Computed example of a mutant assay.
Amino acid sequence: MSKTSIWRGVIPAITTPFTGDGQVDHAFLAGHANCMIDAGCTGIVALGSLGETATLSFEEKLAILRTLVQALGDRAPVIPGIAALSTAEAVRLAREAKAIGCRGLMVLPPYVYSTDWREMSAHLRAVIETTDLPCMIYNNPIAYKTDFSPAQIAELAHAYPNVQAVKESSGDVRRFAALRSILGDRLELLVGMDDALVEGVAMGATGWIAGLVNAYPKESVKLFDLAREGGAEAAAELYAWFLPLLRLDTVPKFVQLIKLVQEKVGMGSERVRAPRLTLEGAERAEALKAIEHAIATLPEILTWPLTNPS
Rank of each mutant, 00 (worst) to 15 (best):
S5R: 15
F148T: 08
K145F: 14
Y239A: 13
N34G: 14
F148W: 05
P217S: 13
N34C: 14
L298C: 09
I128C: 15
T16D: 09
A294K: 00
I6G: 04
R95T: 12
V112H: 13
L47Y: 10
S49Q: 13
R186F: 10
Y138M: 09
N139P: 09
R118L: 14
V265K: 11
L298A: 07
A178V: 02
M267K: 04
E52G: 08
A215D: 14
S181H: 14
K3A: 14
R75I: 10
E155P: 01
V91H: 08
R125L: 13
P150A: 02
G281H: 06
F58G: 05
T130W: 05
I295W: 04
S310L: 11
S114W: 12
A210W: 06
R271H: 12
A296N: 11
L72P: 04
D147P: 15
T206F: 01
S181Q: 14
A94L: 09
V78T: 07
A63Y: 01
A296E: 04
A97G: 05
A83I: 00
G104S: 11
Q23V: 09
G31Y: 07
P217I: 11
Q23I: 10
I209H: 00
Y138T: 05
A240T: 14
G31F: 03
T87Q: 11
L133A: 04
F242Q: 02
H158S: 07
E89H: 05
S310C: 10
Y239T: 10
E270W: 04
L72H: 06
S169H: 13
P305H: 02
S170Y: 02
S269Y: 08
L279E: 04
D38I: 06
N308A: 08
K218N: 05
Y216W: 07
K253H: 07
G171Y: 03
A54P: 05
S220M: 12
G268C: 12
A159H: 15
L56W: 12
H32C: 08
E219G: 07
A122Q: 13
P80H: 06
K289T: 10
G192M: 04
D74Q: 15
I137Y: 06
F18T: 05
A236D: 09
G171S: 10
I100W: 06
H26W: 00
P217W: 12
A165R: 12
M193S: 06
V173C: 06
S57L: 07
P275N: 10
I153D: 01
S57G: 10
L246A: 15
S121P: 11
H293N: 08
R8C: 06
T146S: 07
D195R: 00
R8A: 05
A274F: 13
L197D: 00
F224E: 01
R103Q: 15
I37S: 09
E168G: 00
L187R: 00
L156W: 01
C41L: 07
R175N: 02
S86K: 12
C35F: 09
I209N: 01
F18K: 08
N140V: 12
E286V: 13
R175S: 03
G51C: 07
Q152C: 01
E96A: 14
G268N: 12
G40H: 08
R92L: 08
P299Q: 12
A215Y: 10
N139W: 11
R103L: 07
T55H: 04
A196C: 07
A94F: 03
S181Y: 02
V198T: 03
